[in-house]
Design a protein around this nucleic acid. Structure first.
Lengths: 350, 350
DNA sequence: GTGAAAGCGCTAACAA
DNA sequence: TTGTTAGCGCTTTCAC
């Protein structure tokens, strides 16, 4: 048998209403009575039931989060940030993954919404985000994060993707690289296209054509394979620019397999900034997304809506930073020593 | 106004009970009526309210998960596995992080339990896991994962830690390493101590003393600093053995800063197995934990309990694998070529 | 300051 | 097969 407010009331010799008041600090309760109630609750091991509380018109204290992939550290770091924010305000977080599938996205969304959460944070699995009809119809406040469809007009927070692309391109062109290869996950995503635009802008400003872009997919294995294929095709850029973490990983792996030294033979700019990027040799120059801030901003917006803010929906774009480390250098630069040039570039290892 | 079963019933011209039956497939409902109900629900945009369903004695369809750190990929991979299992059975997952603090652990546990979940999966923040009194008292089925206190007698799933240590030690001693340094997070955790025991066993069997162990903490920064200090103290092992991912990262970073080449100057065995470990040069030899299987096993146990299994509590230990890659080699072995000895870190043959 | 009682959305028992 | 009704645990008037 589960212990309810009723048992506590009985033991303390008060009414259930009083017990409720004690636990919610609403109406003022006599100190003595309150003490008795708390004691009774302790003895009985009573814990309030949130489902019941919520049912009775109490503003819900849950927020739901839906991301495309729980194995992707960018999304889980986002969740970590969200979880901290949300807890701080006494909310609980319920999470789900759409596994990159629109169908699953819709399903999960339904399940999530069935908890009548106070709000919803969602990283859509694609630019359609058709399911947005759902939260909208249910009038649940929601904010879209990271993958913001171009035509979306609600609250949204993302990174300034074009600027991120610009940052990387400027760094590389500044070093003297003219022939770079951009490794995108998929051009089907608005944020990725924006990053490409930023890169093209920089090249355009220099009177150069936009660099080629290849799509390497959304997993490590696929990315490695695609970059390998590119290398096998005789591609010889002086620098690689990754637009996602998996692209970064794929570039690194393929380059190693082909015995290309970094930055001797080729420079590499990675995307995102994880500990391992500082641990490896050479440490990776990369574009850092302010994940924690993204989570905080998303929560701030959602919180405002939950509290009934009448502000018009707004879109914020956070700045990325270029973490300059040792994987980028001028093409054919000082790091290219005889020992490295030693011939085997062109044959895959093993 | 939120749309309830009542509005649907009214529009469809049936009773609420019938609507409930339609959505739960319990009693058989006339096909025509069912169609009308569904149509009404669609028109109204009705979604069932799980909180209410749960309140009314319906077996809860949520499971709660509590981990020490949402920024640690081991735990988030575990959650990813759990989420997939749980969803498959129509359960929702609510997550929380204890941030490694017993106080927060207790708090979160209370919040989680307040949803009256069908079950609970917890990775304790320490070996005390004093809070276990909570789920036990509330009679909520729960299973402890990964950090299983030595004296814990309930359902638990972890890795065979001693064996993991043995695997790594055998690999290293097999290569001819006698002087190794073990980098543990903290000896305060049972699982870490077990890994050390496994290592000591192998050395003991060879008539060698157990290798020294240093505690490098639970973060990347701390680990890097501790290993750096060790190196600064003149330590010269021929191999490093990491017992956690952060220890791995710390070893790699410090070694790079000190210009020690891998595996030329020193071999490294990492812990856990992430994509980046294959991407870096040299690819890292490491101990892989079967994270996904851990999640699945945990869920299987929990599910059995939820369904009322009377089995005695059981503890399962999953096997780890050694992923043999290029960061380990015999000490002063064939890989130590003149070119490498020159001091530039991390540019092995590949 | 406290208690009594209504009712949140739903399901389950029972009646029709 | 369908409708009616009594609660699940809680919050919230509204008397007192």
């Amino acid at each position: 048998m589960t212990i309810s407010i009723k048992e506590v009331a009985a033991l303390a010799g008060v009414s259930t209403g009083t017990v409720s008041n004690v636990f919610n600090g609403k109406a003022s309760v006599d100190r003595k009575l309150a003490g008795r109630v708390r004691e009774a609750a302790r003895v009985l091991g009573y814990e309030p039931n949130r489902a019941a509380a919520q049912l009775r018109g109490r503003p819900a204290r849950v927020v739901a989060a839906l991301v495309p992939d729980l194995n992707n550290p960018f999304f889980t770091n986002l969740l970590a940030s969200l979880e901290a924010c949300v807890r701080e305000r006494g909310f609980d977080l319920i999470v789900a993954s759409s596994n990159g599938s629109p169908r699953e996205e819709r399903e999960r969304l339904g399940a999530l919404l069935a908890w009548q959460p106070a709000g919803l944070i969602v990283v859509p699995c694609d630019d359609e985000f058709e399911s947005r009809a759902l939260p909208a119809r249910r009038r649940v406040p929601f904010v879209v994060v990271d993958r913001v469809p171009g035509n979306f007009r609600g609250d949204a927070v993302s990174v300034d993707n074009a600027d991120a692309g610009r940052l990387a391109a400027e760094h590389l062109t500044g070093l003297g690289h003219g022939e770079i290869l951009v490794a995108a996950s998929t051009l089907g995503l608005q944020n990725i296209r924006e990053r490409c635009d930023g890169i093209a802008q920089v090249f355009g400003g220099l009177g150069l054509p936009a660099p080629p872009v290849i799509e390497v997919g959304l997993s490590f294995e696929q990315a490695t394979e695609r970059i390998g294929t590119f290398l096998a095709g005789g591609g010889h850029p002086t620098a690689f620019l990754a637009l996602t973490t998996f692209a970064t990983l794929g570039i690194l792996t393929a380059l190693r397999e082909w015995n290309r030294s970094i930055p001797g033979d080729v420079s590499v700019v990675g995307f995102d900034d994880y500990s391992w990027m500082q641990a490896v040799s050479p440490p990776l120059t990369s574009i850092r997304q302010p994940v924690e801030a993204i989570g905080r901003e998303a929560w701030e917006r959602l919180r405002a809506r939950i509290e009934g803010s009448g502000q018009p929906p707004s879109r914020i774009r956070l700045q990325c930073d270029l973490m300059e480390r040792a994987s980028t250098a001028p093409p054919n630069g000082p790091r290219r020593m005889p020992a490295d040039a030693g011939g085997t570039a062109g044959e895959p290892a093993g």
